Computed example of a mutant assay.
Amino acid sequence: MKKILLTAAISTLLAPQLASAAEEVNVYSYRQPFLVEPLFNEFTKETGIKVNVKFAKEGFTEMLKKEGQYSPADIVLTTDIGHLVELSDNDLVQGVNNETINENIPSQYRDSEGEWFALTLRTRNVQSSKDRVGQLPADFDYMDLASPEWKGKICTRSGKHHYNISLVSSMIAHHGEAEAKKWLEGFKANLARKPQGNDRGQVKAVKEGLCDLAVSNSYYFGKMLENENQRAWAEAVYINFPGQQTSGTHVNVSGMAMAKYAPNDDNAIKLMEFLTASKAQEMYAAVNFEYPVKEGVKRSELVASWGDFKADDLSLEKISNYRSTAVKLLDEVKFDL
């Protein structure tokens, strides 16, 4: 009898600790540790919920498929819209209909069924050589990348990269498949070299005189400016926002989705709410020189210095419907060859 009472007493004493230990959420993250760990630490500080993170550059789609219903993943954080759509297309996420999250994230930056949500924004800019070109005119548009005046003067990374697939998808959404293909042909004809490298490499090529224009995401501009070895690359160009007198500048995103079999779904919702709230939005966007998704949240001082711009207001969900067509067109014009 004493043994039973002692066991019961110990169980009672340990119950709060066991409950506390169960308070966790598991995240699969394509985003780097330095970007998200400060957010998770703050979330744990405020809620007591522990965040367990698995980091990778690629492969979570395949991992989630293999794990199936036994997957420990609650939330997947991605670097771009391509990964979000891939997860959705493979039926690896579930819809979330949460009033707080929906209020924080504008409808154009979330899936209509709640299968994914944007967390930060970055623009697809065109950087121009300060010495040879100067600031591009206010009416410069993505269509101008195919103008003969830029023949042999443009640098970009592979057309098959998620960032460029997204840009081509937006061109199809706005101009139709036939016009987008014609544009791609002109764009390819204007390349100074075969598509290669990353976004920073395109700006470096402008600094070295290999081309006059570089297509690159906005946040790389900030990352180069903070890098002692790359600052000269960024200082050699102007950052330009195309489409200001037409459809607006193309915007890509980092984002999140709830895994299909999330074992800690209540805690996952709490983390998703936290990531879309003003405090986390300001922290998350500032650390990587991106734009907050939630309206009214302050931009970092450097990002704000680049000026205001009109973003393309076409929903990313609609743009993403053309991703397979974009890849087909890139193959047809042999963009990367």
Score class of each variant (00 low, 15 high):
K130D: 04
K130N: 07
K130F: 09
D131V: 00
D131E: 13
D131R: 05
D131H: 04
R132W: 11
R132D: 13
R132V: 12
V133I: 15
Q135R: 15
Q135E: 01
Q135T: 03
Q135M: 03
Q135C: 02
L136T: 01
L136P: 00
P137H: 13
P137F: 06
A138M: 05
A138K: 02
A138N: 12
A138Q: 11
A138E: 15
A138S: 13
D139P: 03
D139L: 04
D139N: 05
D139I: 02
F140S: 02
F140Q: 03
F140D: 03
F140E: 02
F140L: 01
D141A: 00
D141H: 01
Y142E: 11
Y142V: 00
M143V: 10
D144S: 10
D144G: 08
D144Q: 07
L145T: 04
L145K: 02
A146S: 15
A146C: 14
S147D: 15
S147G: 05
P148S: 09
P148M: 08
P148Q: 11
P148W: 09
P148T: 06
E149A: 15
W150F: 07
W150A: 05
W150P: 00
W150L: 08
K151I: 11
G152M: 01
K153W: 01
I154S: 03
I154E: 00
I154N: 05
C155A: 12
C155H: 08
C155P: 11
C155Q: 06
C155N: 10
T156P: 06
T156H: 09
T156S: 13
R157G: 10
R157A: 12
G159L: 04
K160P: 13
H161K: 12
H161E: 15
H162E: 12
H162P: 15
H162S: 13
H162T: 04
Y163T: 11
N164Y: 08
N164V: 01
N164I: 00
N164T: 06
I165V: 14
I165A: 03
I165K: 12
I165E: 00
S166W: 13
S166D: 12
S166Q: 14
S166N: 14
S166L: 14
S166H: 15
L167P: 03
L167W: 10
L167D: 06
V168K: 04
V168W: 05
S169H: 13
S169Q: 15
S169Y: 13
S170T: 11
S170N: 09
S170V: 10
S170H: 05
S170D: 07
M171K: 05
M171I: 08
M171Q: 14
